[in-house]
Design a protein around this nucleic acid. Structure first.
Lengths: 164, 164
DNA sequence: AGCTTATAGTTTGACGTCCAACTAAATGCT
DNA sequence: AGCATTTAGTTGGACGTCAAACTATAAGCT
């Protein structure tokens, strides 16, 4: 019989107490949303450990890359590209400027906006972070398999694009 | 030539100011980690909007489902299954108990641990949330395509499992 | 010129998350 | 029995995030 002990099929010891293994995930197991979350968090965690080895928070990586690739980018453009609210960027940029990785200049033509650029020190840190990221990607590639990689990324991009 | 204007290829107006469209994502565009993050956040956001319509936070959904499927589960087991630190669960359970969705009972055999169960009210809320989630899943399925869905979830599961 | 509206960035408050330290209860060892 | 270790859950501090309110500049309209 199935689940007749009223515990949803979990393994029980002789006192009827759960012993932890074998959780019933119900519909979560088959749903994209849940698995997407779990996978993303695992990947983030893994990259977090790698980047911690060089003393940087993982969130800095995308920020620095986007500044490097788009010199003079404004904070709002950056927050949009990075998928974060602009207000989240304020303390990040503050920190990066304070540590001398990013230079911030008011624009003359529009005195509201800043232009962001990497300093040489910022470029150096980014180089190290990029090495970490490549290592991380190799690990992910190994898990995904070369055959499916392209298709997998394409699906991720579609999800991001088509869900508003 | 490529990027000869020193702005990484962004479109510029005649004053040399960026006009926002066409950000250069550099290597981020091809990396799994970044796209995974963006897709997950888009999906989360979408579900957040759906579940907000019935006045629940999206984080409650997995919690309630896991309790429903594993009656009497302990908080530590739940936090493990949900991929969160056990301390994150304290205020969540507090809130669910306060609102009468979850019942919390000390175990007699081990007076440290609690047993969690859904109340009838909790089951009702979960039913509504599940409807939202199904709608959300249908949207995701439409984006992913029925052909790739199974393979996609399999890859997500592997990422979660094999990255520690 | 003088309104009104829009935009760039900051501030504030709420929330969810982690980690490390803690309390209370259980287990194990001698 | 007594002490050390482990375990379940809570607490407190730090951080990243969002949304809404705010300041200052800019742009559009009359």
């Amino acid at each position: 019989m199935h689940g007749a002990n009223g515990t949803g099929g979990r393994r029980l010891d002789r006192n009827g107490e759960a012993i932890g293994l074998s959780i019933n995930f119900g519909p979560l197991a088959h749903w994209v949303g849940f698995n997407l979350r779990i996978a993303q968090e695992a990947a983030f965690q893994a990259f977090s450990h790698l980047s911690q080895e060089i003393g940087e928070s993982p969130g800095r990586f995308a920020t620095l890359t986007l500044i490097a690739r788009n010199p003079g980018i404004s904070q709002t453009e950056l927050s949009l590209a990075n998928g974060r609210d602009k207000s989240s960027l304020t303390p990040v940029v503050e920190d990066l400027v304070r540590r001398g990785l990013v230079q911030r200049k008011r624009m003359n033509s529009d005195r509201r906006t800043y232009r962001l650029n990497l300093t040489p020190a910022g470029k150096k840190i980014l180089t190290m972070l990029t090495r970490c990221a490549r290592r991380h990607e190799r690990n992910l590639d190994r898990v995904i398999g070369a055959r499916d990689r392209k298709r997998f990324i394409q699906i991720l991009k579609r999800i991001a694009a088509e869900l508003d």
